[in-house]
């Protein structure tokens, strides 16, 4: 909340600098900047891969033959199959690339489904309080007690009836993740709303005569969302892990419908003992990298959001007059003398 917006806050550049992530990137220094940039680069590659999968992948995710005939199974990396083929005869590179698309879809669905419900419930619960609040908190706590993966399996069976196509599999994973994430968003927004509602500017709106919905959406909501980018990133990585877990347990998406890293890992289990490493290493690496990238962003956003953890640029050697001139207006804000 203490962004140092200089001269003209209305200009486009200033708006751009105030955006989450962009703002933090400009603010960060040293190791924290390194972490954030690494996270952003990995995540950027992931996003690009997902979007341009049809162009990047040499074959389709369910392609078993080309003009030259059927792919032989468990073939080691070669010029034709850069990362080899799986036991079912799929091209590993293509499966890994197409898999990123499935992963992205799950993130988008899961977060979209949970973020709106979570924010709305949290806002209402935190601002209105009373019995609505108590009931919602109890429900949220009960949901917390559920094991995510079990819930996901149940959701997968209910939604797809065992036959998994792309949309069914993605939805199953997303919905189960949603059920678990809604309480998280709910909790965070509720806590913030409770804090913000006792601030003087909310009381001031009340005294002015503003009605509850106006206060909630104009004054409380926008001041309660500062931790969202953080949970967003952490939840995204959890979503990927849940999807992979589902696939690994056999409740994922059929290989003919879409590529999915967890499923490929499952199928490569027997290969590991036979010395066939390429079928398991690459999907596994993809999962690790994407989760790592997103988590790096989340962690560094977390550090940057906390002024006590945030590293700052040290500008030694500037003259006293420079510093005084640069700092004059900010002095009042920095020293809490009283």
């Amino acid at each position: 909340m203490s962004e140092n917006v200089t001269s003209n806050p209305r200009s486009l550049g200033a708006v751009w600098r105030r955006l989450p992530v962009v703002h933090q990137l400009r603010q960060s220094v040293g190791l924290q900047r390194g972490m954030l940039v690494a996270g952003l680069v990995i995540t950027g590659i992931f996003l690009l891969t997902a979007i341009f999968a049809p162009l990047l992948a040499p074959y389709s995710f369910n392609q078993l033959r080309d003009d030259a005939g059927r792919f032989s199974p468990q073939e080691p990396p070669s010029a034709k199959h850069l990362l080899g083929t799986t036991v079912g005869g799929f091209d590993v590179l293509s499966r890994v690339i197409w898999g990123s698309q499935t992963a992205l879809l799950v993130i988008v669905f899961a977060v979209l489904l949970s973020i709106f419900a979570g924010i709305l419930l949290g806002l209402v619960s935190g601002y209105l309080g009373g019995w609505v609040d108590r009931v919602l908190v109890v429900i949220a706590d009960a949901v917390y007690a559920f094991p995510t993966l079990l819930l996901a399996i149940v959701a997968a069976i209910v939604i797809t009836g065992g036959e998994s196509d792309l949309l069914g599999g993605v939805l199953a994973a997303s919905i189960s993740i949603t059920v678990v994430f809604v309480p998280q968003y709910f909790r965070v927004i509720r806590a913030e709303a409770v804090r913000v509602k006792s601030e003087a500017f909310v009381e001031s709106a009340k005294v002015v005569g503003a009605r509850a919905p106006r206060i909630m959406f104009r004054h409380v909501l926008r001041n309660s969302t500062r931790t969202l980018p953080l949970i967003f990133t952490l939840n995204s990585s959890e979503a990927i892990l849940t999807l992979a877990g589902l696939g690994f347990l056999g409740f994922g998406i059929e290989p003919t419908q879409a590529a999915e890293w967890g499923y490929d890992l499952n199928k490569s289990l027997s290969d590991v003992t036979a010395g066939i490493w390429w079928t398991s290493v690459f999907p596994g690496l993809a999962i690790v990298l994407v989760v790592l990238g997103i988590t790096l962003i989340g962690e560094s956003l977390n550090d940057l959001a906390d002024p006590r953890l945030r590293a700052r640029r040290r500008r030694r050697g500037s003259t006293a007059a420079d510093a005084a001139a640069a700092a004059a207006p900010a002095t009042i804000e920095t020293e809490g003398a009283r």
Binding site: R312, R315, A320, D322, A323, A324, A327, T331, T334, E335
Partner: peptide, 9 residues
């Protein structure tokens, strides 16, 4: 050293 540059306190 602050986010807004150095402050000569």
């Amino acid at each position: 050293t602050t986010d807004g540059g150095d402050v000569h306190a």
